[in-house]
């Protein structure tokens, strides 16, 4: 910094009086307060639309990841923890229909069923939300699941969806929100990274890990096609290679091993958690586990 930049016309130097310091502090405080008011106003004005936009993105993600038709019915299941009574609650209701009554299932922490009832309105504020999953049915048959997961990335949380078909095979992974570095960690949201999860079966998931070895060239080329091919069509084209790769580790994004691990471990944890949950939930929701 040059001398010119430090010297300000009219400002006393080198000593600063207490009155001057107070004036500076008040000046900064006023600017921050004003900024806070502006931001608060913008937040209040946009939060409703942000929520609507998020719901819309989610709905389209669920539909496209499971390749659902117009007749599909999606049930949203939200899980809550009731710390006061040591209970786990599940509320299931038709997705996107806030007015529909919810079916509420209660379990003790050891998994024993404690009852079921029909509930309406929002759940009590004292309950801790634990996560969500979506169950899709099409033409009377189970079409698949979309699980919401979250994991700690390099910078902030990474929120993602994992889609499973009715045999619990992974048919899609999509990152919904993240704040990883552009060009590095942000690459985990691209189809060439998330495509590596496709076709993995329940038995393979426990071994899901990250390697820094380079991607095989043919697999890289196949994953590159995912950006402009629909996932079901792609799975048909590359079934052989998916079968070969499903037992292999996920190849990390170069220079972003932490982000790669965060998403991979998140996907694994979310699926393992879901398998335990579904064993409890399926009979109560009238599905075969």
């Amino acid at each position: 910094m040059s001398e010119q930049l430090v010297h300000i016309e009219g400002a006393p130097r080198p000593r600063t009086s207490i009155a001057e310091i107070v004036r500076i502090a008040l000046n900064l405080a006023a600017v921050c307060a004003l900024g806070g008011v502006v931001l608060g106003g913008v937040y209040m004005g946009t939060t409703r639309y942000q929520a609507a936009a998020r719901l819309d993105t989610e709905k389209r993600a669920v539909t496209s990841m499971l390749d659902l038709g117009a007749t599909a019915r999606v049930t949203e299941v939200r899980q809550f923890l009731d710390t006061a009574h040591g209970l786990v609650l599940y509320r299931a209701r038709s997705y996107g229909d806030d007015a529909a009554p919810a079916r509420e299932l209660t379990f003790a922490l050891d998994g024993a069923a404690r009852g079921a009832r029909t509930a309406s309105g929002e759940p009590a504020k004292s309950l801790t939300p634990l996560g969500r999953l979506f169950v899709a049915r099409q033409g009377g048959a189970l079409a698949g699941f979309v699980l919401e997961g979250e994991s700690r990335g390099y910078k902030n949380r990474i929120r993602f969806f994992v889609a499973l078909d009715s045999s619990f095979m992974i048919v899609g992974v999509r990152v919904l929100e993240h704040e990883e570095d552009p060009g590095l960690g942000a690459e985990v949201a691209t189809t060439w990274f998330t495509g590596q999860f496709l076709g993995r079966r329940p038995g393979d998931v426990a071994k899901l890990s990250v390697t820094r070895d380079p991607l095989p060239e043919d697999w890289r080329a196949a994953l590159g096609e995912l950006a402009h091919t629909s996932a079901p069509a792609w799975r048909g084209l590359h079934a052989g290679m998916m079968e070969r790769e499903r037992m292999q580790s996920v190849h990390a994004v170069t220079g972003a091993t932490i982000s790669s691990r965060a998403l991979t471990n998140g996907v694994r944890g979310t699926i393992e958690h879901f398998r335990r949950r579904w064993a409890l939930l399926a009979p109560a929701l009238g599905e075969a586990s």
Binding site: Y43, T46, T47, Y49, Q50, A53, R54, D56, T57
Partner: peptide
């Protein structure tokens, strides 16, 4: 915030 709300 405006972009997130109106141009997701």
């Amino acid at each position: 915030m405006t972009l997130a709300a109106f141009a997701p």
